[in-house]
């Protein structure tokens, strides 16, 4: 299977993972996996059957001044408490089900109002970038929060590469849609209109805080966190940070977004973290930090999730109760 791990490996990791596979997975699983490899059956098969952490590989990333110095949430919680409805609506469903998602090979199509539209193989997309560690606060619209050490690079680097036209005002994003790999998609009562789509204004997308993440805690992204590549926009509610991106389209008109389509009164296009604008059904004034036990104390939610100094000017003169 190691053979199957393609260029991304060689490109991003100057050295092999310091942890042997046998140390991170149960011995019987390891041995079975080894049999498969030795049997030289389809490499893809063994890749699909191996547990998730065996797939994780270390990433080299430089620290960033844009990181918070707050204590990151435990990896266990970041990878077991997820909203990724394609794999089920329960918080632990994605961790249970997302292993079925094939993330290799992966291509991202960047098109629309650009001079150089392209379909990038993920390896090619990552070739010219320098990965950084960005420790960001994440505030979910449901009223909980985490601190996550992402590994990624500014979204603007990809946008600049395709050269947006002057008419481009918005950026639309789309998550992969593979019903055969996604147990939460389908049924006669779909929770959302698939595929999951999101959008940003072009100036928001060009902001240095907006990143495309390919890892967390120094390793490649687990599937339940949006592998292999996802958006992270830390001053907006978590659902804006779309996972497992296959398409980025530059547009003149504001693109539709999934939760806004599902309930326009509750979820706006902007969805900036704002303690003063409540969700119609619950308050956004406070948040519960994840992973601090039964007696965790709610803490006040900050305007723009605490990134106001950097991003407030993007919304100067806008009525944020109207553009929520």
């Amino acid at each position: 299977m190691e053979i199957a791990i393609s260029g991304i490996h060689r490109l991003l990791f100057s050295h092999a993972p310091p942890v042997r596979p046998s140390e991170i997975m149960p011995r019987d699983v390891y041995l079975n996996r080894r049999d498969l490899i030795l049997g030289a059956t389809a490499a893809g098969l063994s890749a699909a059957m191996a547990p998730r952490r065996a797939e994780a590989a270390q990433l080299e990333a430089s620290p960033s001044p844009l990181s918070t110095d707050e204590e990151p949430t435990a990896l266990e919680h970041i990878t077991n408490y997820n909203n990724y409805y394609e794999f089920g609506t329960g918080k632990e469903d994605p961790a249970k089900n997302a292993h079925t998602l094939t993330t290799k090979p992966w291509t991202v199509k960047v098109d629309g109002l650009v001079s150089r539209p392209a379909e990038f193989d993920l390896n090619d997309l990552l070739k010219p970038v320098t990965l950084e560690e960005r420790v960001y606060r994440l505030r979910c619209v449901e009223g909980w929060s985490m601190v996550i050490p992402w590994v990624g690079f500014p979204l603007s680097e990809v946008l600049n590469r395709v050269e947006p036209l002057g008419s481009a005002k918005f950026v639309a994003f789309e998550t992969v849609l593979r019903p055969e790999e996604m147990p939460g998609v389908g049924g006669f009562f779909p929770v959302l209109d698939w595929p999951y789509v999101e959008g940003l204004r072009l100036d928001e997308a060009m902001h240095p805080l907006a990143i495309l993440a390919v890892g967390l805690y120094g390793e490649t992204l687990p599937n339940q966190n949006g592998a292999p590549i996802r958006l992270v926009v830390p001053w907006k509610y978590g659902f804006k940070s779309i996972k497992s991106i296959v398409r980025i389209t530059l547009m003149e008109a504001q693109p539709p977004t999934s939760w806004n389509k599902q309930n326009p009164r509750e979820y706006g296009f902007y969805s900036n973290v704002n303690p003063e604008v409540d969700h119609p059904r619950w308050s956004q004034a406070t948040e519960l930090p994840i992973g601090q036990g039964l007696f965790a104390k709610r803490k006040p939610t900050l305007m723009f999730n605490g990134y106001g100094e950097q991003v407030a000017q993007l919304y100067a003169g806008m009525d944020l109760t109207k553009f929520y």
């Binding site: 408490y81 918080k91 039964l294």
Partner: peptide
């Protein structure tokens, strides 16, 4: 709950 076995968001 009291033995911290209710996962990431035990209160919820």
């Amino acid at each position: 709950g009291f033995t911290n076995q209710l996962g990431a968001n035990p209160v919820r």
